[in-house]
Design a protein around this nucleic acid. Sequence first.
DNA 1: GCATATTAGTTATGTCTTATAACAATTATC
DNA 2: GATAATTGTTATAAGACATAACTAATATGC
Lengths: 160, 160
Amino acid sequence: MSRNKAAVDEGTAARSIVNDDGLRQFLGYHMKRAYSVLKSDLTKSLEPLGLRITTYSSLILIVDNPGIRQSELARNLDIERPNMVVILDELEQRGWVNRERVESDRRSYALFATLSGRQVCEKAITIDRAHEARLFQGLKDAQIKTLIAVLNNVERQVGE
Amino acid sequence: MSRNKAAVDEGTAARSIVNDDGLRQFLGYHMKRAYSVLKSDLTKSLEPLGLRITTYSSLILIVDNPGIRQSELARNLDIERPNMVVILDELEQRGWVNRERVESDRRSYALFATLSGRQVCEKAITIDRAHEARLFQGLKDAQIKTLIAVLNNVERQVGE
DNA sequence: GCATATTAGTTATGTCTTATAACAATTATC
DNA sequence: GATAATTGTTATAAGACATAACTAATATGC
């Protein structure tokens, strides 16, 4: 009886500390949590520019690769083509990107950033750098390098 | 004119290699890509057990914290309470978790894993370990430790 | 002790992201 | 030259995640 009562107390007591060692043993759990806060912080930081993470990363690739095709862009960002269309509609509507018919392959559009597209991209990059400086402050360069190496390694493991 | 032509060629040529240095400078981009492949790989690995990542992580916390309340669970996993209800409905329907009324606070349910709940959880953990061993193979312990430290640091930076 | 506020779980619903199917136009392949 | 494959597109569906409002129970302030 007292055994039972003790067990119930132990089992049902509200606790402020929850044992999540079982989850913390997995890197995936740490990655999910870290990426989750990073994502929402970056989303908030970019919002004043009218950019979301997907439009922002698309814009960077277009600025850095003038004339890139929609399908190439989609492939590189792991975005399905139908979803890419919507993203580019948005970028084009804002006047940041132009679709131009390709003479040599009239199925494709070549993508170019406009002047204001390049300008907003620069602003976004500045914001993103500040955002990451904040989130990764206090870390040594060696730690950052290790992080990138590990993440790239993960990406590679599944490609095979 | 030839300048123009050259520029067009350069601009519109289909390319196999896309310059993503602009994106690769950001840790967030690496994290997104790495977590994306990790997530889809783990989802596939757990699917035969009838678990999704959310149900799986909820189950672990219930197994490790017998009697935990729904709201505590939701808070710890950053899941909104209404969404937690659906997850627990699923776990309960499968016979892996029981909701039990708490005598001392009849608003709450205390959550307990059943025997088969604990068994499927063990299987899932084994699968998850194999999945992570695969994804993080070839990495030194020191690198893993650094990764965890960095990720925890990110989590902490935004809490403030 | 009682009115008011708060909390737990729930339902219904909305939004945002990502995936799938089908189509026209164009190009590649055999 | 017939057939297949590719590009961009539309429409639609599936998913995860968020919000509002409600009931039942408990906590708080006077």
